[in-house]
Design a protein around this nucleic acid. Structure first.
Lengths: 345, 345
DNA sequence: TAGAGCCTGGACAACGTTGTCAGGCTCGGG
DNA sequence: CCCGAGCCTGACAACGTTGTCCAGGCTCTA
């Protein structure tokens, strides 16, 4: 019995509880609770005594117990691909900002594009009873979330729709953006245009590829297989892919890069070329305007996407929304030079 | 009484509890707990029945209750300045990676360089009983953390030391890095070198300024006041500051930029100059090698800093460390061209 | 076949907080 | 002087889980 007491006392390294504060202030437990939560009905004198005890003991309310009692954690989870990616930093920050406005904290997790890890993270967040989830999906089957949705966990998907479940999704107009970007190249006289992008099993990559194809078809240009390189993002392979489409029997005069990582590598490759090759990239990159030439991109607004998703999440939590929706945000073509280079052949 | 039951049932939107699972499986509550936690002492047959009930009900353990009971949350907090800053993304990611290896989740918070907000965030994290804290300080007085430290919250400061308390800190060798960077300019013949940095009340800024002064003094070069611009980071003011030191009566032939944001703006200003001015920046920036000329920088390894800090945090949690230490990580001078431009005067 | 020992399962308290409710006090009016 | 209204205060249960402890049934051996 004394042992039990000892253990409980060292539990959080001797953290005082409301009971301790109450004892020291000579009041009841509930009175302490009232003071801590700013509830009315406490005499100034009593409040002063309690506050004194709180300061003296360094008391800090235990939110775990509070959550258990109240059922709301005032925290939301954000599962994304990789926080180190410059696209996700601002996105995460804007989600945090909205959460903060609603008094909630943000728990971040990186899935590293691994579906299993995504599920693991999401379920861990659910076990902590986050009030809501913003998920940038890595996998394409999210039925494992059904019990959670039924239990009332607000959920918004971002960047790619959820697989096999009906949920809100906020994303950029990947198709339209890519189509416009490629059309821009065509408008500048290009016909042999290369495409380097991620695996089509990734929704954004598939949509952008579709946009590329649509633009080419609209212009009546048949696409050669050698112009497309899919499932390629690591620098080494992008380098090889770009090299091939630039030197083949039917060399391209322009390249459309499917995402920011690809764009960066393509810039490097093009810098080594003697021939001038046009480039439009999907996603903006920092300092793109300072390069020679400036890099023309199809930009998405990561912060705006995050804000929109988080807004929707909290509206779900307020019980305002019921029907899952798909929200597509427009992209913006930013011309800086690289996309306006005329074909050299 | 029936009302109470109704409320409890709708608490988390009808989330099943171990009690519900136990009832459905026809076993005791504790048996469910054992199955969920993989504890021994359950027949395969019983386990099967329990597992079935769990799946049927979509049960997910409530970690809030678990935490309350066990005293460990398996989560750590990271308070930084701004997750959208390219320096902090990789840092956060590497902290997350270490946390993950220890089975912990990461809660992120951005202080926006506001001391009050920092404190608010840190205390909110403490109320949630995070096991540990990694803090990039915004304020310079952290005595408010004393009760927490005493209560056993592991804490590591990053980038700047804690104020008025004794705690671990992991940072770059800001002084040495800046001194080396400036010495590099001096070695290339410069004598009139400008310095643009943040307010000296920020530790890193002060250290870098000290490094600048040390390098100049080592070379026996007296520093003119008009060469130094402190407390300047927003583009507009950097622009003005740079303009002044480039056009004054005693114009500089080289600039040392105190952080990544300053560097970017200075690059823009220099690009507009006819005269060629040398530049070395503190912090690496993306694509720095693709610019004309490439940007010479003093680089810190954000990921390594995060990893080191998180490692130390968990070592504290394992009870291995006792004495707070200051760990300084080396910086690396990366020459790319802009720092090797000879003085033009 | 009886007893010892092991294995499985369940009852119960506790973690720290908050919602409910009732008791006691003060104050003013009749 | 008494009574009711209104304000403070505190006792108590409950949130969902896990640690402790004990009971009952089984196996194995003598």
């Amino acid at each position: 019995m004394p042992q039990t007491h000892l253990r409980s006392a060292t539990r959080y390294g001797n953290r005082p509880t409301m009971k301790d504060v109450a004892a020291r202030a000579g009041v009841g437990l509930k009175t302490v609770s009232r003071v801590v939560n700013g509830e009315p009905g406490v005499t100034p004198e009593t409040e002063r005594r309690v506050q004194e005890a709180i300061d003296a003991l360094g008391f800090r309310r235990n939110d775990s117990a509070r959550v258990l009692r109240k059922g709301r954690t005032a925290s939301i989870g954000l599962v994304l691909e990789d926080l180190a990616d410059p696209f996700y930093g601002p996105l995460s920050r804007s989600v945090e900002e909205v959460a903060r406005a609603h008094g909630a904290l943000l728990i971040n997790g990186s899935s590293a594009e691994d579906p299993e890890r995504e599920q693991e993270l999401v379920l861990a967040l659910c076990a902590r009873r986050v009030d809501g989830l913003v998920v940038i999906p890595a996998g394409d089957d999210h039925r494992y979330l059904e019990p959670e949705l039924k239990a009332g966990v607000a959920t918004v998907f971002v960047d790619r729709p959820a697989g096999h479940i009906d949920a809100d999704v906020v994303l950029s107009d990947n198709f339209g953006g890519a189509r416009d970007g490629v059309a821009h190249l065509i408008a500048h006289g290009h016909r042999r245009i290369g495409f380097i992008g991620d695996m089509p099993r990734i929704h954004t990559a598939a949509e952008r590829l579709r946009g590329y194809r649509a633009a080419m078809e609209d212009a009546g240009i048949p696409v050669a297989d050698s112009w497309m390189s899919l499932g390629v993002t690591d620098p080494e392979r992008v380098r090889r892919a770009a090299g091939e489409m630039l030197s083949g029997p039917d060399p391209v005069t322009a390249v459309f890069a499917g995402n920011n990582r690809v764009t960066v590598t393509v810039i490097r490759v093009l810098a080594e070329q003697t021939r001038r090759v046009a480039l439009v990239g999907f996603d903006d990159i920092e300092l793109a305007d300072l390069l020679q030439p400036g890099v023309t991109v199809v930009a998405q607004d990561a912060a705006e996407i995050g804000r929109t998703a988080a807004d929707r999440l909290f509206r779900q939590l307020d019980g305002i929304l019921v029907t899952p929706e798909r929200i597509e945000l427009p992209t913006r073509l930013i011309t800086r030079g690289s996309g306006e280079i005329p074909p050299a052949d």
